[in-house]
Simulated assay, not measured.
Amino acid sequence: MPRRSATLFVLLALAISGPAAAATPFACRIGPRADDSFLLAERFEMAVRPEARRTEYRLLVQNPHPYPAAVLTGIELYGLVQSPAEPVLVPPGGQASVLIGWFPHDMSAGRRAPPMIEEVRAGMTIPFCEVLAPDHGQVAMPMAGRRAPRLG
């Protein structure tokens, strides 16, 4: 339960902090023993993609560890389509843009406007985050910009 409380506290801090907040830590397991660690939320992004006929919401994640990390976001917000249930790999010491979800433009045809980034930030969760540290001499393979294989 303490880990869940810490995660909720960090997500609440993200919701209150606004777009100017830089590098806000959020809880993330590290290694096969699932030790407590963190990754950094750099910023939330909202982008209109006319070619895809949708507005996308993303979280830019920074990984301060020397191993890759897998991050999966979740959201339950009316009208928003949740991103695929596959973790995104964040390279060691690098950044990755993690898709939270999108709002289809056909929903806005006189019925509803896309949610503001503040609504998405407040409704977003991080149900899975793990730094893929090796165990017993295994070598970690960074896979920058590619999705992680399905875990579990």
Results as ranks from 00 to 15, higher is better:
Met1Asn: 15
Arg4Ile: 12
Arg4Leu: 10
Arg4Met: 11
Ser5Tyr: 13
Leu8Pro: 00
Phe9Pro: 02
Val10Met: 15
Leu11Glu: 07
Leu12Gly: 15
Leu14Gln: 00
Ile16Gly: 10
Ile16Met: 14
Ser17Arg: 10
Ser17His: 08
Ala20Thr: 11
Ala20Phe: 10
Ala21Met: 06
Ala23Lys: 15
Ala23Tyr: 15
Ala23Asp: 15
Pro25Ile: 02
Phe26Glu: 03
Ala27Phe: 14
Ile30Asp: 05
Gly31Phe: 02
Pro32Gln: 15
Ser37Ile: 08
Ser37Trp: 02
Phe38Ser: 03
Leu40His: 04
Leu40Asp: 04
Ala41Thr: 12
Glu42Met: 11
Glu42Phe: 01
Met46Arg: 14
Met46Ile: 06
Ala47Asn: 09
Val48Gln: 05
Pro50Leu: 08
Pro50Arg: 01
Glu51Gly: 15
Ala52Val: 13
Ala52Trp: 06
Arg54Asn: 08
Thr55Asp: 00
Arg58His: 14
Leu59His: 05
Leu59Cys: 00
Leu60Asp: 00
Leu60Glu: 09
Val61Thr: 10
Asn63Glu: 02
Pro64Leu: 02
Ala70Ser: 01
Val71Lys: 00
Val71Thr: 08
Thr73Asp: 09
Gly74Leu: 00
Ile75Met: 06
Glu76Met: 08
Glu76Trp: 04
Tyr78Met: 12
Val81Trp: 09
Val81Tyr: 10
Gln82Ile: 11
Gln82Thr: 13
Gln82Asn: 10
Gln82Trp: 07
Gln82Arg: 11
Ser83Met: 08
Ala85Pro: 01
Pro87Ser: 09
Leu89Ala: 10
Leu89Glu: 09
Val90Thr: 07
Pro92Tyr: 03
Gly94Ile: 06
Val98Met: 08
Val98Lys: 05
Leu99Ala: 02
Leu99Asn: 02
Gly101Leu: 00
Trp102Cys: 12
Asp106Gly: 12
Asp106Ser: 10
Met107Gly: 12
Met107Gln: 12
Arg112Asn: 14
Pro115His: 03
Pro115Asn: 01
Met116Cys: 13
Glu118Pro: 08
Arg121Glu: 01
Arg121Asn: 02
Arg121Asp: 00
Ala122Pro: 07
Ala122Arg: 09
Glu130Lys: 13
Glu130Trp: 07
Glu130Ala: 11
Glu130His: 12
Val131His: 05
Leu132Gly: 04
Ala133Cys: 11
Asp135Arg: 15
Asp135Phe: 13
Gly137Ile: 02
Gln138Ala: 11
Ala140Val: 08
Met141Pro: 07
Met141Gly: 10
Gly145Trp: 02
Ala148Tyr: 04
Arg150Pro: 09
Arg150Gly: 08
Leu151Met: 06
